[in-house]
Every structure is written in C-alpha cells, then in structure tokens.
Design a binder for these strands. Structure first.
Lengths: 241, 241
DNA sequence: TATACTTGATGACGTTACGTCACCTGCAAG
DNA sequence: CTTGCAGGTGACGTAACGTCATCAAGTATA
C-alpha cells in the first residue's frame, strides 16, 4: 500500500500543501496515517476522498456543505439549492458585465467618463424597474408595492423567479418535458413564489403573467420567451390536474 | 445647505450604517463635517460621491479600485481589466453550473449519486482537455506541454484566451470593427498571450489557430466561431501593418 | 564531519467588506 | 428621573486559504 506525503499529493492534484493542512485542521480530510513526528501520509482512499472534495469544490460548494455531502445527506436538496444559488450569481454577474461593458463603451464615446451619464444610466434602470407597474390599475398597485418589496438586485423573490426561469430554459434545451418530475418541481416552486408575491390573488397573478409577455424594454422586467411561458403554463397545468 | 446623518443616508441609499462608518474608516468616503462629538454629517457632494461608489460596487469592483477610480486614474484600464475579470468569473460559473446540472440529472437517473460516474465525468473533461494535442506532431507536443502548463480550470493563460474571445464576441455584437482602438488593444493582448504560450514560434502558433477552427467536441477546447476567428485575424492584420 | 539544502510541521497574522456584539454618550419624551 | 433612541468607538468573526517566521528531520555536498 503506497502512501503519499503532503507535497506529493499537492503536486499530483495541483493544490497547495497549505490547503491539505487546512483540510486536516478543519477535519474535512484527515490523512489516515501520521508519523510519530506528525508527518502526514495519505492513502489511496484518502486521495479518492480528496478527489470528491475537489469536484464538489469546483461546483463552488462551501467546504461546510462538502463535509455534509461526504457524510451522506440528501444530495439532491443540496445540489438543487446550490444550483439556484449559482443561477443567482450568474444573473448578478451578467448585469455586472453589461454595466461594465456600457461604461467601457461610454469611455470610448466620450473620452472621459461623465458621471452624470452614469447616474442617468443607473437611474434609468431604476425607473424601468418600476415602470411595468403602470400596466396595473391603481388599486392593485398598492398590493404590488407591498408584495414585491424591493425590485432592486438584492430582492430574493425576483432572484427566485430568475432562477426558475433559467431552470425552465435549461429543461427546454435538454428536451425535458413539463410533464416530468422536474416540471412538477418547478411548477410547485412557481406556485409557491407566486403565492408569496400575490398573496393568493389569482386574478392579479394572471395579469402579472400577461404583462411579462411584453418585450423587456417596455416593462423593464427580466424577459420571458414564448417557449418558457408555455413551459411554465404546461408545468402548472400538469400539476393542477 | 442640508446635511445628513449616517442613519438618514443609510436609509436613503439602502445601505447599512456600519458600511458608512467603514467607508469613513478606510478613507473611502469621509463625511465633510464632523460634530465636536464625532457625529458624522454628509453633504450633497458626499452623497454624490457615495452614489458613484455604489455604482462601481455594483460592478463588483473592490473598494481599493474604487478609491483609485474616484481619485482619477485611467478609467479604461481599470474597467477593461475588470471586464476581463468578470468574464473569467462568468466562464467559471458557467462550467460550475453545467457540472451541477449534470449531477442533478444523474441523481434523477440513478437515484443515488455514484461517485464512479462523477469521477468518470470529470476524467473525461480532463481527457478532452488534452486530446487536441494529437493534432500536433511529436516534437511539438513537448513544447506545448511546457508552454501550456495546466489546461485545468485554474490556468491563467486559457482564462485570458477566453476573456479575449468574449471581448471579440462582444465587439462583433456591437458592430465594433477590428480596425478600431479596441481591436488594436485586443490584437496586442492576443499577441502577448500567444507569445507567452508559444515562445515566439510563429509556425506552431499558426497551427494552433488552425486546430482551434475544428469543432469543440473534437478538440475539447473552448470553441471559436468563424466570425471571431476572422475578427482576430483582422485585428492582428490591422496592427501588424 | 560540518554545512547547506530540501521537505515537512506548527503557529500566527493578513486578506474582503462588512455583521454583530458590548459598551458609552447626548438628547428628547414621558 | 428614568427610558429610549440615535449616534459613537473598539473588537471579534467570517471563508479559505496565502504568507511569513521558526523549528526539526533527513539528505547531499564540501
């Protein structure tokens, strides 16, 4: 049975020695043997475990979660929640990227950055974020104001929506029908989020979906394609029958 | 002239009081007036400056960089480098997402996660990552092995490439010709990275670009479209004349 | 054999952008 | 006079290590 030292393992898996010592320290990966001088020796099983850890880490899972997964726990729960988290990160990143790109563009156009322009830009996106509310009559606006508290980046509800939209897009791309387990899952989450937002007011909810079909520039909302809308409707239809 | 306290500003801009105090502490945003008891008072100018900070922060810029931008410095350099950074983050995130999606899929298919499958999956992507080398004759492989050290996720060179590719795609989308400043910039960075990789061996470099034209599944490399290739070639042609 | 080099180990502090106590203070209301 | 509130200042905690400084064992060299 061969045993590897920290240095060897580190080189082999392309990680730092410090990392291995850290994993030992937080009891994530304890080498199966230690010298009488404290020298660490890793077995093949240890390496396999490390491999798992590296894979999970490549999914941006925090080490704490990795420990739980390794000690068995509902894989799916952790992974799906993680997937949603990643989608949120992705959407944040993408807005960040488009903002940056706009700024770069502005530099080229105007030579020097004019902060008025920048402010204007951000202001516009703020304005747009609320403009779609004009599609609703006055009495309903109050409810909307309350039920969709912050339409800023940080809003959890909108992030959940975006996560769901992405999942639906993904399903469509991978030819997963709305009449599947995943579809049912999505439907239930959709309903949950909708109820959170609209407090059971189905009428209001219907209207909201109608509005969402309008082009993005008009509403300032995250755009929804026809396919996704159809997917969503079929999901919900499948579950409610 | 109205002056605002920390609490008022915090509420207004939807940030925490702690944040304001922190910005004062690190001298990023020092209120223009302080009470004889140390109470902070922000002027309109301060609020404007804060607005800038918030915008820049929304671009995921670290506060250190924000300070530099605020005190004037080549906006463009910082922003473009930041843009590249974001692109790197994006590509990492995207592989992360697709891995996660695959894993979730596997759970559905196999009920419980089999680590053998996972390993296999990762192994395959590793295999693919080196497969394209078969397009080169033996003598050149050695150089390639050395010059493109790790084709893993962490490799900086490949990340730079990906960043450049994304920038070119972006230019194409925004109708920016290769014969522009941005094109020249991209060309010089392309040449720089190529030289880093191929150590001035133009012959080898040419071949590498040829290989890149092949479909992604075959090479395991990040795919390049015809347009981008043409864009790159025109960029370089423009600079070298 | 003395010396130097390599590889390993162990603290301990640094990093980012704040969150979260604990504790103190000036001021207005009840 | 107490209470409460809005403000203040440290100081510690966070995630996942990077980066010293220092020490010990084993190996190679002069």
């Amino acid at each position: 049975m061969k045993r590897w030292t920290t240095g060897e393992v580190a080189k082999q898996r392309n990680i730092s020695v410090r990392t291995l010592r850290y994993y030992d320290q937080i009891q994530l990966l304890t080498p199966s043997f230690k010298d009488d001088h404290g020298k660490r020796f890793y077995s093949e099983d240890d390496l396999f475990k490390l491999e798992k850890i590296i894979i999970l880490k490549s999914l941006s899972l925090p080490l704490e979660d990795i420990r739980m997964i390794l000690d068995k726990l509902t894989y799916k729960q952790i992974l799906t929640s993680h997937y949603n988290y990643l989608q949120e990160e992705l959407s944040k990143l993408q807005t960040s990227i488009s903002h940056t790109a706009s700024l770069i563009n502005m530099i080229d156009l105007e030579e020097s950055l004019s902060w008025e322009r920048v402010s204007e830009m951000v202001q516009n996106s703020r304005k747009n974020a609320k403009k779609w509310m004009d599609y609703f009559p006055e009495e309903e606006k109050a409810i909307l104001q309350e039920s969709l508290p912050n339409l800023s980046n940080n809003d959890k509800t909108i992030q959940k929506y975006i996560g769901l939209l992405r999942r639906m897009e993904w399903c469509i791309q991978h030819n997963i029908t709305p009449e599947s387990d995943e579809g049912a899952q999505i439907a239930s989450e959709l309903i949950e989020v909708s109820n959170e937002s609209f407090q059971e007011d189905n009428n209001l909810m219907e209207k909201f979906w109608e509005v969402r079909k309008l082009p993005a520039e008009e509403t300032g909302l995250y755009p929804i394609s026809e396919e996704v809308l159809e997917f969503a409707e079929r999901c919900i239809a499948y579950v409610t029958t």
